[in-house]
Each structure stands twice: as structure tokens, then as C-alpha cells.
Design a protein around this nucleic acid. Structure first.
Length: 280
DNA sequence: ATGGCTAAAAGATTTAGA
């Protein structure tokens, strides 16, 4: 399975480019974030023409996530257990859920396309929402792996956290002042690793950003951030054979401000009860 | 212009992004 994640920043604005990438790069499963539309507005045609089945979750022009796959898809879910909601000026557990997660069983692999809340600023309610959301995600991962330690699972998407100082090259994003680099966000990211997930791209692609702001020549100056990740359970991580960050997708006509991140795996769904192959 | 760009919409400004 070749799995990719990409914050497309509006699928309607960039559908041709998105599908061209998936086809050209031989992507089997493409997790998208910030599709910025409802399912009834999603441009399914170009994906289906290229052999992809799309499952989209969007409520309005904000957020929105999707999974496009040319492998069999089952058990689609539009929130993980315990995922909190958010609404401006509203507190507490009754806040409505946003379209920030879609999960599916794809050829035996549990894939989650995630768009972690931005946080906005350290003193904004959205920041606490971000931390709550990440804590709930950690809880979900722990429960899933407690239930089945061998579960092949990939959490992919825009985590809106630069886990190390080297992951932030944007001079406007400052430790102690900005979201994405604050200690509590970084702790929340590491808690996902403590829960049993591993960044499966980092060992193969140690350096490089996945996002550059549209403003202030951030891309030509290479003042970006590494905030898009593919986190795998042990069974998933063991199957990874390659990884790449597609910096070239930040160039050209109307690019997203994020680029795709890709992993190759040799995972087989029936590894646990492998049947010997008989030839002839 | 103090976010110097981009996208979407209950749009001609506002909200959101990171």
C-alpha cells in the first residue's frame, strides 16, 4: 500500500492538481485535509475517473477531511471516540463536532485522516480545544492498541504542531509566543508516541518542511514548518519501506500551502494468520 | 497596510488559517 496525506486547502480549487499527483505518484490511498466543502460539493468525478473511491466528511466551508482509495474501503467513521467539539463563545461537552477526522479500514489498515485544530493563539479557547482534541486522540489510540496490539493503524494529516525546533523555520513562529511550538502542544504530540505510535517518515526523511505560509516569500526563503505527519502503530511501522515529502508540489499554479507526505508499505492484512503460498 | 496571501460565503467584508 502506498499511502499519502495532503492538506489540499480547498479540494474544489485544486482537484486537478490533486488527482494528477495521486496518479503520477501511484498513490493507493490519499488522505486529505481542509477540503473546505460538504460531501455534496466534493468533486468526485476526477477521482472516480482515475479509479479512486472517495469518502468525504465536511460540514461547511471550514475544515473538512476525506479519504480517496483505489483499495477496498470499509467501516468509515467521521469522528474518533471521545473527540471534542468546538463553537465560538460556547463551553463544555455539548459543543458540536467539527469535520476534522475521517477514519476507515482500507485493505485491513485502519487509516485516519486528521486535521488537528489550529489553536489560533495561546490565550484563545481554540488552544485549549486543540489540547483537549489531542488528548482525546491519544486516549483513542491507547484504547485501540490495548484492544489489539497488532492492529495496523496510521494516523495521518495536518497535526498543526512542529515537534522539534528544527521543524520550525518560520521566523514569525516563536517559542513561548506562538501556537504550533508551545511545550504543551509538543507534549501532546509526544503523548501520541508514548501511546505507541511512531513517526514513520522521520527516520527516512530526517529534514524538510511540509508547509510554507503564502505570505512574505516564505517558500522561496524556505521558511516553512514540518507539521504534516504519518504516525503508525507498531504493525504499520514494521511494514514501512519508504517515505517522501513532495516539496515540488508547493510550486506551480495555485499550490496548496502544504505538500504531500507519502509512505510505502509492504503490509499485508493477513500477516497474523499467514497462509503458506503453494506454487504450481 | 503591523497576518502584505488565499479561500469561501447568509459575500462587496468577514472569518479562518499557523
Amino acid at each position: 500500500m502506498r499511502l499519502a496525506t495532503w492538506n489540499v486547502n480547498s479540494i474544489r480549487a485544486r482537484v486537478a492538481r490533486t488527482v494528477e499527483f495521486a496518479v503520477r505518484e501511484n498513490v493507493d490511498v490519499l488522505a486529505m485535509q481542509e477540503i473546505k466543502c460538504r460531501p455534496d460539493q466534493f468533486p468526485y468525478g476526477p477521482f472516480e475517473d482515475a479509479g479512486y473511491e472517495v469518502h468525504a466528511h465536511g460540514l461547511n466551508q471550514w475544515n473538512g477531511v476525506a479519504i480517496a482509495s483505489r483499495l477496498p474501503v470499509d467501516d468509515v467513521q467521521t469522528a474518533f471516540d471521545g473527540m471534542p467539539g468546538f463553537a465560538k463563545g460556547m463551553e463544555g461537552p455539548d459543543r458540536p463536532l467539527e469535520a476534522r477526522a475521517i477514519g476507515a479500514l482500507v485493505d485491513g489498515v485502519r487509516v485516519w485522516s486528521l486535521y488537528v485544530p489550529n489553536g489560533r493563539s495561546l490565550n484563545d479557547p481554540h488552544y485549549l480545544y486543540k489540547l483537549d482534541w489531542l488528548a482525546a486522540l491519544r486516549g483513542h489510540v491507547q484504547a485501540e492498541l490495548a484492544r489489539d496490539p497488532h492492529l495496523p493503524m496510521a494516523l495521518v494529516g495536518d497535526f498543526n504542531i512542529a515537534p522539534t525546533d528544527a521543524d520550525n523555520g518560520d521566523p514569525a513562529v516563536v517559542e513561548g509566543v506562538s501556537t504550533h511550538v508551545s511545550p504543551r502542544e509538543r507534549e501532546a504530540f509526544h503523548a501520541l508516541e508514548e501511546a505507541g505510535l511512531a513517526d514513520v517518515v522521520r527516520p527516512l526523511v530526517p529534514a524538510g518542511f511540509t508547509y510554507w505560509d503564502y505570505k512574505r516569500l516564505r517558500f522561496p526563503r524556505n521558511e516553512g514548518m514540518r507539521i504534516d505527519f504519518i504516525l503508525g502503530s507498531p504493525a504499520f511501522a514494521d511494514a514501512v519501506t519508504g517515505a517522501s515529502i513532495h516539496r515540488e508540489e508547493r510550486k506551480g499554479e495555485i499550490p496548496s500551502d502544504h505538500v504531500p507526505v507519502v509512505v510505502d508499505t509492504d503490509f499485508r492484512a493477513d500477516d497474523d494468520d499467514d497462509v503458506p503460498m503453494i506454487f504450481g
